[in-house]
Design a protein around this nucleic acid. Structure first.
Length: 738
DNA sequence: ACGGGCGTCTTTTTT
DNA sequence: AGACGCCCGT
C-alpha cells in the first residue's frame, strides 16, 4: 500500500508533514478529504502511529464515517480505535467519562433548540422581567455567543453591572445555566465549553488526552468558533501536532460564531507552523471554476488565491429567468428530465440548491407531480415532529429522571387529566425541596394542596415511568420504544382519530422504530444514552435517507458544503432572497452571502444552472426582486441564457433592453432597472423601481429600497435621509418621483 | 382540563 | 402563509 499514490506534489507534502503544526489552505475541490485520509493512513503505516493516538474532527458524522471507511479500504485494517467525529460527538465521549468532576451525572441529556426555548421562557417568567425586552430567540443566541466566547454568566454580570439591561441578560443566562444543570442537561455549546472547563480544572484529565491525541486533524477549520479553537489548543498544547484544513472563502457560519480569524490565530499560536496551499481543483470545468473565482473576487476582505484546473472549458453556465417560482420549478424539473434522457445522467447526479428551506416546497411539489424521485436534506426535520419529540421525551426522562423539561412534555401526553395547575403545584413543591419533578411524585403524598384525583393520576404516572426505568435495564432500545408506545397507547390514540395527519404520524413513529433497529445493528455501543446523544447530534446531512438510492437531492446552500454533484441548479438567484434582504446593507453579511454563493457554484462538476424569477410569493405576499447581484458578477461570456418556447415575447423585450443598455450583465444595470412586472400586466406597470428617488411631503427625499405587491396594493419601502426606513402604500402615500 | 377561535407576529442559514 | 400565544367558553 502506498499512501502517496495518485497525489500531486502539494498533496504529498501535506500528507508527509506529520510533525508540528500544519495549516492546509485547501481551495474548493482540491482534494482535501483525500489528503486527510491519506495523511492518517500515512501516520499509521509509515510513522507507526497507533490509531488510538489520532483525533480527527470533521464537520458532520457522515464525513467522519466516510473518512474511516476510506482509511479501512486503504489499509485493510479496522479503525475502531481511531477517534473521528464532530466536535460535539467527540466532546460527548469525553464528558461521559468524567463529567462528574463538574457536578453533572454521566447520564446527562442534550437539550436541543426547542428545549432551550422552553428553558429560556421559564427563566424570563421566573425572573419576572418584561418579556417584550427579551425575545426568546435572541436570548438563546446571546447565550450561545457568550458560551462561544467562553464568558460565564458571572463574568458577564460583573462586566455589565452598571447597565441594567445587560445585567438582566446576564441574569437570565445565569438562571438558564443553573436550570440546565439541575436538569442534568447540556446544550450544544455546553458540550464544547464543559469539556474545556473539565480540562482546565483537571490537569490529570487534560494530560491523559494530550498524551492520547498526539496527532490532531481538523477539517473545515474555517467554520470553527473560538471555543472549538480553544479546545484544540488545549489538547494540542503538549505535542503540537495539529493539522488544520480549511478555506476562508468557504466560511459560511459566521452567524453561528465561526471565526475566520482562527486561521490567523493559528499562525500566531504555532510559531513554527507550515502552510501548504492546495490550489489545483479537480472537481469542476474551467467555466464553472472561473465563474466561482470571479464572484468571490468581489469580496474585499480576503486573501487572493489562485484556484486552477486542467479540465476543459465545459458547457457554459445556463441562466434562466422565470416569471414565477412555479415556472422556475417547472424549468428545473424539465431540464433534469431532459438531461437525464439525453445525456446519460442519473437522478442522483442532480442537486437543487436554495437559500432558505421555505423555497423547497414548490420544487418538491413539481418533482412529485412529474414522478421524479428526490430526497431532501434538512427542512423536513423528522426529529422535530411532535410525535417523535414525544417518544424521545419519554426516553430522555427514563434515561435521566432529572429532566424536568421532558417530564412536563409528557406528563399529560397522551391525555391523563393532569393539567397545568397540578404540574404547577408539583413545581412549587420542587422549588422548595430542590427535587426534580419525577422524584417529587414518587412520594406524591408529601406534596401539599393536591386533589385526591390529581394524586391518584400522578401516582399512576410515576408508576408508569418507574416501570419503564426498570425495563430499560433489561431491554434494547428498539424493544423499549415499542413497549412504551404500546403501554401509553400512543398509536392507538392516533388510529382513533382516523385523519390523514394521524396516519402520517403513525408512519413517522414506525420510521423512528426502524431508526432504533438500525442503530442496534450498526453501532458498537448500544446504550439508551448513546442512542439519544446520537440522534441529537446528527447534522441534516447525517439525517438524510441513504437508502433512497437514485434520486435528485434538494438542500440549502449551507447544507451543500463539502458535497459535489455533476449538475447543480442554483435557484432563487434574486436580490432579497440571495443575498438575503437583511444582508444587503451589512458588508460582513453580504460577504458571507457571497462566500455562500461561491460554495454553491463550486459544488458543480459539469453543468451549472442559475435561475431567478420576476415574481415570488414570499411570506404570503408577492414580491418583485431584481436578479441577484451575484449573477452580474459572473462574466457574461461564461453564461448562456436559456429562452424557452414560451419566452419569445420575453426575448423580444430583452433584446430591446439589451440595445438600450448596451450590455445586460455588465455593471449593476439590473438593480436600477425598472421592476419587471409579470408579462401579462405589462400595460399596468408603473415606474416604481428599486433605486428610484422620491420626494415625500413630510419626510423629504428618499430612495426606494423595496417594492412589494402589485396594482393598488403596491407597498414600497423607502429609505429617507435622517428619517429612517418607512413602509408606504403607494396608492396613498404623498410622494412623487423625482 | 381542554379545545376552538381569534389576533399577532415574523420572516435565514444549524451543531 | 403559517406558527404561536392568548382568551374564552364548555
Amino acid at each position: 500500500m502506498n499512501c502517496l499514490e495518485g497525489l500531486n506534489d502539494k498533496q504529498k507534502e501535506a500528507v508527509m508533514k506529520t510533525e508540528g503544526a500544519t495549516l492546509i489552505l485547501a481551495g474548493a475541490g482540491s482534494g482535501k478529504t483525500r489528503v486527510l485520509t491519506h495523511r492518517i493512513a500515512y501516520l499509521i503505516t509509515e510513522k507507526g502511529v497507533r490509531p488510538n493516538n489520532i483525533l480527527a474532527l470533521t464537520f458532520t458524522n457522515k464525513a467522519a464515517k466516510e473518512m474511516k471507511e476510506r482509511i479501512e479500504n486503504l489499509l485493510q485494517m479496522n479503525t475502531y480505535s481511531l477517534w473521528a467525529g464532530t466536535f460535539h460527538s467527540i466532546c460527548v465521549r469525553i464528558l461521559r467519562r468524567d463529567i462528574e468532576r463538574l457536578g453533572y451525572n454521566t447520564n446527562f441529556v442534550i437539550f436541543d433548540y426547542t428545549d432551550q426555548k422552553t428553558v429560556v421562557k421559564n427563566c424570563i417568567k421566573e425572573l419576572d422581567v418584561n418579556p417584550k425586552h427579551y425575545e426568546v430567540k435572541s436570548m438563546i443566541s446571546f447565550i450561545s455567543n457568550q458560551k462561544n466566547k467562553l464568558t460565564s454568566p458571572q463574568e458577564y454580570i460583573k462586566e455589565f453591572f452598571g447597565d441594567f439591561r445587560e445585567r438582566q441578560k446576564g441574569e437570565i443566562y445565569e438562571l438558564y445555566q443553573s436550570k440546565l444543570k439541575s436538569n442534568n442537561a447540556l446544550d450544544f455549546d455546553d458540550l464544547i465549553t464543559k469539556t474545556i472547563e473539565l480540562f482546565i480544572n483537571n490537569e490529570d484529565i487534560l494530560d491523559y488526552y494530550q498524551e492520547k491525541f498526539r496527532y490532531i486533524l481538523v477539517d473545515e477549520y474555517q467554520d470553527t468558533n473560538s471555543a472549538q479553537y480553544e479546545l484544540i489548543r488545549l489538547i494540542g498544547k503538549k505535542y503540537k501536532n495539529v493539522c488544520v484544513v480549511g478555506d476562508a472563502d468557504q466560511s459560511i457560519y459566521g452567524w453561528r460564531g465561526a471565526d475566520i480569524s482562527n486561521i490567523l490565530e493559528f499562525e500566531k499560536e504555532y510559531t513554527n507552523s507550515k502552510i501548504i496551499k492546495l490550489e489545483q481543483n479537480y472537481r469542476s470545468t474551467k467555466n464553472i471554476l472561473n465563474a466561482a473565482n470571479y464572484v468571490i473576487d468581489n469580496n474585499m476582505n480576503r486573501k487572493k488565491k489562485n484556484l486552477w484546473t486542467e479540465q476543459e472549458d465545459g458547457k457554459p453556465l445556463c441562466l434562466y429567468n422565470a416569471e414565477s417560482e412555479l415556472q422556475e420549478a417547472s424549468f428545473v424539473v424539465d431540464r433534469i428530465q431532459n438531461i437525464r434522457d439525453i445525456e446519460n445522467y442519473f437522478y442522483k447526479d442532480f442537486c437543487i440548491l436554495y437559500r432558505t428551506n421555505a423555497q423547497s416546497r414548490i420544487l418538491e411539489e413539481m418533482l412529485i407531480k412529474r414522478n421524479i424521485p428526490y430526497k431532501i436534506v434538512g427542512g423536513l426535520k423528522f426529529y422535530d415532529r411532535k410525535e417523535i419529540k414525544d417518544i424521545v421525551a419519554y426516553l430522555r426522562l427514563i434515561q435521566n429522571p432529572l429532566d424536568d423539561v421532558s417530564f412536563k412534555r409528557i406528563v399529560n401526553t397522551p391525555k391523563r387529566g393532569i393539567g397545568l395547575k397540578t404540574v404547577e403545584k408539583v413545581q412549587d413543591y420542587c422549588n422548595n425541596t430542590g427535587e426534580s419533578l419525577y422524584s417529587a411524585i414518587l412520594d406524591v403524598q408529601d406534596i401539599g394542596g393536591l386533589s385526591k384525583g390529581a394524586i391518584a393520576k400522578l401516582e399512576k404516572f410515576s408508576l408508569l415511568i418507574s416501570k419503564f426505568i426498570a425495563m430499560k435495564e433489561i431491554m434494547g432500545v428498539k424493544e423499549l420504544i415499542e413497549a412504551i408506545i404500546n403501554d401509553i397507547g400512543y398509536i392507538k390514540e392516533l388510529e382513533e382519530q382516523q385523519t390523514l395527519e394521524a396516519e402520517s404520524r403513525i408512519e413517522n413513529i414506525k420510521e423512528f422504530i426502524s431508526v432504533a433497529v438500525n442503530y442496534e445493528e450498526n453501532e458498537g455501543e448500544k446504550s439508551l444514552e448513546d442512542f439519544l446523544a446520537n440522534i441529537s447530534l446528527l447534522s441534516d446531512i447525517d439525517k438524510t435517507d441513504e437508502t433512497v438510492n437514485n434520486s435528485v437531492t434538494l438542500m440549502t446552500f449551507h447544507s451543500s458544503k463539502g458535497l459535489e454533484f455533476p449538475i447543480v441548479f442554483m435557484t432563487g438567484m434574486e436580490e432579497n432572497v440571495f443575498p438575503l434582504s437583511r444582508a444587503i446593507f451589512e458588508d460582513d453579511e453580504l460577504e458571507e452571502e457571497r462566500r455562500l454563493c461561491y460554495v454553491g457554484i463550486t459544488r458543480a462538476e459539469k453543468q451549472l444552472f442559475l435561475t431567478h424569477t420576476d415574481r415570488r410569493m414570499l411570506h404570503g405576499k408577492s414580491q418583485f426582486n431584481a436578479p441577484s447581484r451575484f449573477l452580474e458578477e459572473i462574466p457574461r461570456n461564461l453564461i448562456e441564457e436559456y429562452l424557452g418556447e414560451k419566452a419569445n415575447k420575453r426575448k423580444q423585450i430583452r433584446e430591446g433592453m439589451k440595445k438600450q443598455e448596451g450590455k445586460l450583465f455588465k455593471g449593476h444595470v439590473y438593480r436600477h432597472e425598472t421592476i419587471k412586472p409579470a408579462i401579462n400586466d405589462i400595460e399596468n406597470s408603473t415606474n416604481i423601481a428599486i433605486g428610484t428617488k422620491v420626494n415625500h411631503k413630510v419626510w423629504g427625499i428618499g430612495t426606494i429600497v423595496q417594492v412589494k405587491g402589485e396594482g393598488e396594493k403596491t407597498e414600497v419601502t423607502v429609505a429617507f435621509k435622517n428619517k429612517g426606513i418607512k413602509k408606504l402604500m403607494l396608492s396613498f402615500a404623498p410622494i412623487e418621483i423625482i
